[in-house]
């Protein structure tokens, strides 16, 4: 409690594992988390199948996902022009009132041209469509410069800006567009999962200041970092608690 006298505490791997195992996580709450993600991110097919496979009812009428899903897949295929057309068919206000998103889409279009090796088109497009917007907004210009920097490298993928060519970049654009459509429909626009991870990141950062404990550094593997300085054995991968089979004495529930 007293910030001055608090010596740094260490929680060992074994102690932490016991705590992790004692948490009771209900499968249905995880299922809801997944369903919420599928619905809001517009994975209609998956959401429908999930509803029938796990019995979790989706929170919205799945037919309303259809449009969003088409637009998402268009972006994920790299068909940006098509996606823009579809959004404007749905509601032209979405892009008209959102210059940042509009720029992000055009930038993605530029990246796709570069990916396809259509250098002349890419340059023409950058000059005619993107540069004027960049002049209005300095942060846009910076993004544009990064994308054009791709052209400076022989091996674009391994270049410092190579991440722009990742599929994750398309996914990012698709999610931003999806969120804008949901907002225009007055629907919940953010899935819970990213917020949950933000909370985990926040909580770990808070605890870092106070305690040495096994933290997660890569949420995709869930591997715990050893808190003891003398990091003995290498990474023994993820936690070993039996899933869902926690004992009866449970202080925490979700």
């Amino acid at each position: 409690m007293d910030s001055t006298s608090a010596a740094t505490k260490t929680i060992t791997r074994a102690e932490w594992q016991t705590m992790l195992d004692s948490v009771s996580v209900s499968k249905s709450s995880l299922n809801r988390l997944v369903m919420n993600y599928l619905v809001i991110e517009g994975y209609k097919d998956a959401a429908e199948r999930f509803a029938s496979e796990c019995g979790e009812t989706p929170t919205v009428d799945l037919s309303s996902i259809e449009d969003r899903m088409c637009i998402r897949t268009a972006v994920q295929r790299g068909a940006i022009e098509e996606a823009i057309e579809l959004v404007n068919d749905l509601n032209p206000d979405i892009l008209d009132t959102n210059p940042k998103l509009c720029f992000q889409l055009q930038l993605q279009r530029l990246i796709e041209l570069i990916r396809a090796g259509q250098i002349d088109e890419a340059l023409a497009f950058a000059q005619s469509e993107l540069a004027p917007r960049g002049e209005e907004q300095p942060q846009f210009l910076e993004e544009l410069e990064k994308a054009l920097a791709l052209l400076a490298f022989d091996n674009q993928r391994t270049s410092p800006v190579g991440h722009l060519l990742d599929l994750a970049q398309r996914q990012k654009t698709a999610s931003a567009l999806n969120a804008a459509i949901l907002a225009s429909q007055n629907q919940e626009r953010d899935p819970k999962l990213p917020s949950l991870l933000k909370m985990l990141a926040w909580a770990q950062t808070q605890l870092d200041d106070r305690t040495k404990y096994p933290r997660i550094n890569d949420v995709v593997t869930g591997a715990l970092q050893d808190p003891e300085e003398s990091a003995t054995s290498g990474s023994s991968a993820s936690g070993s608690g039996a899933a869902g089979t926690s004992n009866g004495s449970v202080p925490m529930r979700i």
């Binding site: 996580v25 995880l30 949950l196 991870l197 985990l200 909580a203 869930g222 936690g239 899933a243 979700i254």
Partner: peptide, 12 residues
């Protein structure tokens, strides 16, 4: 891993 993230969150 999703469940691990939730368990970790609860414990932290």
């Amino acid at each position: 891993a999703l469940e691990l993230a939730v368990r970790q969150s609860v414990c932290v």
